[in-house]
Design a protein around this nucleic acid. Structure first.
Length: 488
RNA sequence: GGCGACAUAGCCAAGUGGUAAGGCCACGGUCUGCAAAACCGUUAUUCCCCAGUUCAAAUCUGGGUGUCGCCUCCA
């Protein structure tokens, strides 16, 4: 018996049993494609992927939508702010459209590398300008807006429930305001449509009933979520930063426009933080991408495992020693699976598998507690009362959530086999690439060491191994007489 | 300035009233000429500090210290 799926809801600040009729409509805030997504962004998508997989495991169908934000929002709320897409284009000497395509592509590559399932829809903001204009028009018609010199604004004073979701105190927000109010009536009012500057043509702008301009920063998610999902949405996710501004504004504009509840269940992922606890952020230039990880020889799935070490609602500290320990953990997990599991798939009763995975499902369904779920997997692997067949079958099921390719045998392409001139078999492993001459030198040292070992000249063979270490090579003597060289 | 979160072993962390999960590292053992790998085992009388509630507190309350986040685009 698996327990019912329980999930934290930001709206109630408590863990609730999740219920839905059949299909779950789920909207997750996606990337703005003006630059690389860093691994902190990826942490949120991994959390949402676990949510998606847990929903499916609990028997729900999922209709999952993730937006691609390819409209340039401003870097700040004042007129002086630059458009991020335009800045990206300027930086790389390309058009904004090229920039959007480039970073959409790398985003897709990244999520694929992390075994993140694709949602049912990936709508792009620029394909939905008419829907956004229609929603703004509705809000205008219903009297929730006012117009200033630079745009059409949502009047939060007309929506008394505005403060409810994030439990805001408008007076206090006012007191802390650091931004230029411009002509806004209230600090919490936000733009629905911005007019293009009169003296400058923007790279991305559209005609509207109110003049040439571009959509405000919150309208796209609202317009697109309502186009692809039925209201109220069952689930809406995003990063923790979205609670106070983005999601609060979304609720206001949607509920004002439709008169109906926007979304039932909200989940927010916490930050990946740097060693001092500061969040990884693009604007601070403090970030690591998946490609950087890969260059350092870290398997993306080791990063996925790293994300499971903390609960999604807790900040997770990132460090290089941390990611290396995750890589180590990932390697040893796969080795355990390979060595302890039987070679063939077996048909075991699902009751028995669920029994073996009791602790695992209890953890997953308890608000996606992946640290506990992983602990359950380690405990299961060490449990002598569970057979190898059962372990393998259980891991296959657990991997529908973990998606760590636990049963997949690694392709041997990172392993190179060479025969030295002395006839020794040398197997090269490891992530670093070495030049041909470097490899040749390693081979000759391996030969020399082998000769020394045959003469039982241990001092010489140890010296030669040290020499290899100095070159960044760890030599292991294998049972079959070959030498494995790990390049570091 | 306002609001909020967090503080658990060397590191990453789970645990929200019943006597400290798990991973990595380290250490010991088996194996090895020695190593490496693998396997087995060990590692927090204690959860930032002080006071309180309770039969019982890492978990609740009050105070203090520290770190971070949000209030501006942001996962």
């Amino acid at each position: 018996m698996r327990p019912a799926l329980r999930l934290f809801n930001t709206a109630s600040l408590s863990v609730e049993e999740f219920k839905a009729d059949g299909t779950v409509g789920m909207y997750c805030c996606g990337p703005t494609v003006y630059n690389y997504q860093h691994i902190g962004n990826m942490r949120t998508y991994i959390f949402e992927d676990i949510l998606r997989r847990a929903l499916k495991a609990a028997g729900f169908k999922v209709n999952h939508v993730v937006n691609i934000t390819d409209v340039g929002h401003l870097t700040d709320d004042a007129d002086s702010g630059d458009d991020k897409m335009e800045k990206g284009a300027e930086r790389e000497g390309k058009t904004v459209w090229d920039i959007a395509q480039k970073y959409t592509n790398t985003f897709m590559q990244n999520i694929d590398a992390l075994n993140i399932e694709h949602p049912e829809a990936f709508p792009r903001a620029t394909d939905h300008i008419p829907e956004m204009i229609a929603m703004v028009q509705t809000l205008i018609d219903k009297g929730f807006t006012y117009t200033t010199d630079d745009g059409i604004y949502f009047d939060t004073a007309k929506f008394p429930d505005y403060v409810k979701f994030a439990r805001l105190d408008p007076e206090q927000l006012m007191a802390g305001a650091r931004i230029d109010m411009g002509e806004k009536h209230s600090n919490t009012d936000f733009a629905l449509w911005k007019f293009s500057p009169k003296d400058k043509k923007r790279a991305m702008e559209w005609d509207s009933p109110w003049g040439v301009g571009f959509p405000g920063w919150h309208i796209e998610c609202s317009a697109m979520s309502l186009k692809y999902l039925s209201q109220p949405l069952d689930i809406h996710c995003g990063g923790a930063d979205h609670i106070r501004i983005h999601h609060t504004n979304e609720i206001a504009q949607v509920e004002a426009a439709t008169g109906k509840k926007f979304c039932r269940h909200w989940l927010h992922g916490e930050w990946l933080v740097m060693e001092k606890g500061e969040k990884m952020s693009k604007s601070k230039g403090l970030f690591v991408t998946l490609d950087v990880l890969k260059k350092e020889g870290i398997n993306p799935l080791a990063y996925r495992l790293y994300c499971f070490s903390a609960h999604y609602r807790s900040p997770l500290k990132f460090s290089w020693t941390g990611i290396e320990s995750a890589a180590q953990s990932y390697a040893s997990l796969k080795k355990q699976v390979a060595s302890s599991a039987a070679k063939t798939d077996s048909d075991l009763s699902s009751t028995r598998i669920d029994e073996v995975l009791t602790a695992f499902w209890a953890a997953v369904n308890d608000d996606l507690n992946m640290p506990r779920a992983l602990a359950a997997i380690w405990d299961m692997l060490k449990d002598g009362s569970i057979t190898a067949d059962e372990k393998r079958a259980a891991l296959k099921i657990a991997d529908t959530i973990l998606a760590l390719d636990l049963l997949k045998v690694e392709a041997a392409d990172s392993v190179t086999e060479k025969i030295s001139s002395g006839g020794s078999k040398v197997v090269f492993t490891g992530s670093k690439e070495f030049s041909d001459e470097h490899v040749t030198r390693v081979l000759s040292i391996v030969d020399a060491r082998k000769a020394a070992k045959l003469e039982k000249n241990w001092a010489e063979s140890d010296r030669l191994r040290d020499e290899l270490v100095a070159m960044g090579v760890i030599a292991k003597d294998m049972k079959d007489g070959s030498t494995e060289c790990v390049l570091k």
